[in-house]
Design a protein around this nucleic acid. Structure first.
Length: 904
DNA sequence: ATTGTGCATGAGTGA
DNA sequence: CACTCATGCACAATG
């Protein structure tokens, strides 16, 4: 992975700047809400703010390949001629230009008034159909690419369709055969949106019989279809007749090329998913709604139904019925609120619900997926000169489905009864589907997940995000678990809508931003148009997790020595060289002493023990293991027994899980300050020591929950230096007090345990008993086993001697007794001491064994302290001592010596 | 006081 | 710029 400098966001309005010197500063290069983006070509990392759409700005210097979405930054573009400008607008990366099928895009758009790559697409189709065993991914990709392009270019043009009201009887005004005539018997895989594709394709088929041949041949490849076929309806969505206007539109070259792309609505994610009978392929169904209804209104793509066969069958329950997905809507806060009014998209209401002339409307019977029938009042309010349609009385239904804002309700019609059916999709799945589903990348590029890994194979982060994907996909929503499963069967996915594909590709390619940075289009799809819903909790999760992952992985070149820069009394390690993405490793804290880092050899996959302070390059092998000469070769045996290794990995996995889980907390929680992180580290130090090993600490705020608006949680992100070290604002004071409290708490626990252990030893003699103590201390997750401390202190004293100054200061401040609500106005010295420490040092201090910490800081031993405090501290102080009393009042009667103010 | 109802407003979006 | 629609808000109804 090439490295490059982290730079400020290129969007002038973003204002993100990480380093005025242009150098990368460890721990400061990124801040919450920012993340690195990588050039797909050279891997250079650039910083991008979450919300500024650098990549969407043509002035940014970044361009996306129109075909594959590859992002290339200006440097690459300039130096390597990586882009081919298309006549129709947009750009192609050279690889796409060279690859079969795409190279013709230019010509298509120039020569074909319909913007269809008539000849080439057909050629592609033919080529694809030449082999009925379309089993290779490449061919699927090609096919997907082809169909995708067709669909993309024509999707919008097909939105205006006119029917006689019955989806089974279509007007033949355009002299086009019904879709079914062409595709029903054969090409049964197109779903509704892809139905548009098929209809689009139909246009072409009409003109190129070769394409039809292809479809027919495709049918022989066991590509099965969608709703219609699966439910016995040969023509699931025959509403698609292209009317004259459409044809006229389609005839307009103006509609083609870049404009069409630009206009391309956010399509249903898996615009076209083929379902192989072999079961290898996902069958996410994305449907255009049937073009029927009175309104003739074009449905915004955000309302297009996306329903899987499973969902449909679940809805239907009756194999003789045909479910016609009508539309869906992501619930807004007000929809899901207690008001019980679900705002219906006007076009949908007018198209698919009974016509109402009076505002009072009429009761509407809608069946849910369980077969339960609900009656809602379907009505409208006059709104300006328009109407606003609502379903009233939906609260019970919403509640029974356990839906909330961000979840999706789907409306379908069960034919021939014409019964309305309401389904739902939980937001997690929705997001999983929308954001993480693998896309079939054209030109032989593997589906997103593999592409993910392929492009970033050197980036351990991939697995992490992959894990995130999986976790999202693995949502508990029973209605879409099947869907989630399908998401993993990426290899079979054939095609996506082009823009969708690009988005997916872009996201995938972006890696960090892709998951983290909600694109505008995507946001639009996720929820409302309102900014209020732009970031839901899961988005926040993604953002935070990714950012943290990025922080974990951005590291200096191992050989580079930093210069220390003091900024606002904070020491930063500053590097001339840009960061690299380092190899992930596993940190463990052994109860028997010391911390360890374990890394896996890229060559032999053996795990090697490393010093904790070692930063590894992205590629690392045993040969590079300069720290253990006995294991500096891949031939050297594993140091870990399989069981130990398993344990190690499992704990690492658990840690990641915890991390992801905690990522569900509001963004604010992640934005703990450096001191907060330190305090948290202290906590995690406790927690981590509760087992034999502990994996690295997190900066998450452990004691606050979603919605917490406490002074700590609401503080700004770290790294921006909004609070000076001498700042005595409530936030800073609270954080500092908290840290001290935590240290004291740790100390107290330690002393209690030590006393307990001493007591046991006293009562139980003999080596067996000692062993029991040892084991029980581990099993009972007793942190800070004194023997451990002794064992570890030796190691750590040396390596962490640098932290002694800080520790002394911490200890000084810690000598006082704590009251989190007091205002230690004369704390500045200790604060300054804190602030001057690098985060690394702070974290190290926080993870020091208490005994070491106390010794280093000249504190009395625990037993001594206990003895002395016992004589001074009133009984109630002891009762409170175990908890952090952040809320205690300065004037509290509880204000014991232990909690007395530091400013005394 | 709480909940329900209907309308108004304005951000966001597509054409 | 017109339109959609999420939500705010005032007023009414109800407990």
């Amino acid at each position: 992975m090439a490295s490059s400098s982290i730079k400020s966001c290129m969007n002038a309005t973003c204002g993100v700047s990480t380093s005025s010197s242009g150098r990368w500063r460890k721990g400061w290069a990124l801040r919450s809400g920012d993340f690195a983006i990588l050039c797909d070509n050279c891997g250079s990392a650039y910083e991008q703010s979450v919300f500024c759409e650098v990549f969407h700005s043509k002035d940014s210097g970044w361009r996306e390949c129109t075909s594959c979405g590859k992002r290339l930054h200006c440097g690459c573009i300039a130096s390597k001629s990586l882009l081919e400008l298309l006549d129709g607008g947009g750009v192609n990366c050279t690889s796409c230009s060279k690859s079969a099928g795409v190279s013709s895009v230019n010509g298509d758009e120039k020569t074909n008034g319909f913007g269809m790559s008539k000849v080439d697409d057909a050629g592609e189709l033919q080529s694809a159909s030449a082999d009925n065993q379309l089993t290779t991914e490449t061919k699927l990709m090609q096919l997907g690419n082809c169909i995708d392009r067709i669909a993309t270019r024509n999707l919008l043009q097909l939105q205006s369709r006119e029917t006689d009201g019955s989806y089974r009887k279509m007007k033949q005004e355009d002299m086009l055969p019904p879709v079914g005539e062409i595709a029903s018997s054969s090409f049964s895989t197109f779903n509704q949106v892809s139905n548009a594709s098929s209809q689009t394709a139909k246009l072409e088929i009409h003109r190129t019989t070769a394409a039809k041949d292809l479809f027919e041949s495709l049918a022989q490849t066991n590509l099965s279809i969608s709703l219609g076929s699966s439910l016995g309806n040969p023509n699931p969505f025959p509403g698609g007749v292209v009317d004259e206007r459409v044809l006229a539109k389609a005839s307009s070259p103006l509609q083609q090329g870049p404009r069409s792309r630009h206009l391309l609505p956010k399509p249903p994610k898996p615009a076209l998913v083929m379902e192989a009978n072999a079961g290898m392929v996902s069958q996410i169904r994305v449907a255009r709604p049937p073009a029927e209804g009175r309104g003739r209104n074009q449905l915004l793509p955000r309302y297009w139904p996306r329903i899987t066969d499973q969902e449909l069958q679940q809805i239907s329950g009756d194999p003789n019925s045909t479910i016609v997905p009508l539309f869906e809507k992501v619930l807004s806060a007000s929809d899901a609120g207690r008001i019980g009014r679900l705002v219906l998209p006007k076009a949908c209401a007018e198209a698919y619900f009974p016509p109402i002339s009076q505002p009072e409307g009429l009761p509407l019977r809608i069946q849910d997926v369980k077969g339960k029938e609900w009656v809602f009042q379907f009505r409208f309010w006059p709104n300006n000169n328009s109407r606003m349609y609502v379903l009233e009385g939906v609260t019970p239904c919403i509640q029974s489905m356990k839906l909330q804002a961000g979840d999706t309700v789907t409306f379908s019609r069960m034919d021939p009864e014409g019964k309305l059916v309401m389904g739902f999709r939980k937001a997690s799945n929705s997001i999983a589907m929308q954001d993480t589903q693998p896309s079939a990348i054209p030109n032989g590029v593997p589906s997103s997940e593999s592409y993910f890994s392929g492009v970033f194979e050197n980036l351990p982060i991939i697995s992490g995000y992959s894990g995130l994907l999986h976790s999202l996909k693995g949502s508990s929503d029973t209605h879409l678990n099947a869907l989630s499963k399908h998401l993993h069967s990426a290899s079979g996915d054939i095609s996506w809508h082009k823009s969708e594909k690009q988005e997916a590709r872009t996201r995938d390619g972006l890696l960090l931003p892709s998951l983290l940075a909600p694109e505008r289009k995507r946001l639009r799809n996720i929820g409302s148009k309102s900014k209020r819903l732009l970031i839901d909790s899961l988005d926040a999760l993604e953002l935070k997790v990714t950012w943290e992952e990025a922080q974990d992985l951005l590291r200096p070149e191992p050989s580079i020595k930093p210069s220390i820069v003091t900024i606002e009394d904070h020491d930063f390690e500053e590097y001339e060289e840009p960061p690299v993405f380092g190899k992930t490793s596993i940190f463990v804290v052994r109860s028997i002493g010391g911390q360890e880092q374990w890394a896996q050899c890229d060559s032999c996959s053996k795990w090697r023990r490393l010093p904790v302070d070692v930063l590894l390059p992205p590629k690392w092998t045993c040969v590079d293991n300069a720290w253990d000469q006995s294991r500096c070769s891949c031939s050297a045996p594993d140091e870990l027994a399989p069981r130990e290794l398993e344990n190690l990995l499992r704990q690492n996995k658990d840690f990641k899980k915890r991390r992801i889980t905690s990522g569900h907390r509001p963004a604010q929680e992640h934005e703990s300050s450096g001191l907060d992180a330190l305090a948290n580290a202290a906590i995690l130090g406790d927690a981590g020591e509760q087992s034999t090993t502990a994996v690295a600490a997190t900066t998450k705020h452990p004691r606050h929950r979603p919605g917490c608006s406490c002074i700590v949680c609401i503080q700004p992100p770290s790294g921006k230096g909004k609070h000076k070290p001498t700042c005595t604002c409530n936030v800073c004071m609270t954080v500092k007090r908290r840290f001290k409290t935590l240290m004291m708490r740790k100390k107290k626990r330690q002393s209690e345990r030590e006393a307990e252990i001493a007591q046991r030893i006293q009562h139980m003699s003999g080596p067996k008993d000692e062993a029991d103590v040892e084991s029980s201390s581990k099993l009972a997750s007793t942190p800070m086993d004194p023997s451990d401390n002794e064992a570890r202190s030796g190691n750590e004293l040396e390596s962490k001697s640098q932290t002694n100054n800080l520790s002394n200061k911490l200890a000084d401040s810690g000598k006082g007794h704590l009251d989190l609500n007091c205002h230690p106005g004369r704390e500045e010295d200790s604060q300054a001491g804190l602030a001057r420490m690098s985060m690394t040092s702070l974290l190290q201090v926080a993870s020091l064994p208490l005994e070491t910490y106390l010794k280093q800081n000249g504190l009395a031993s625990l037993s001594e302290q206990q003895a002395s405090s016992a004589s001074h501290v009133p009984p109630q102080a002891g009762e409170n001592g175990g908890r952090i009393d952040e809320d205690c009042q300065p004037a509290s009667a509880n204000k014991t010596q232990e909690h007395s103010c530091n400013n005394t």
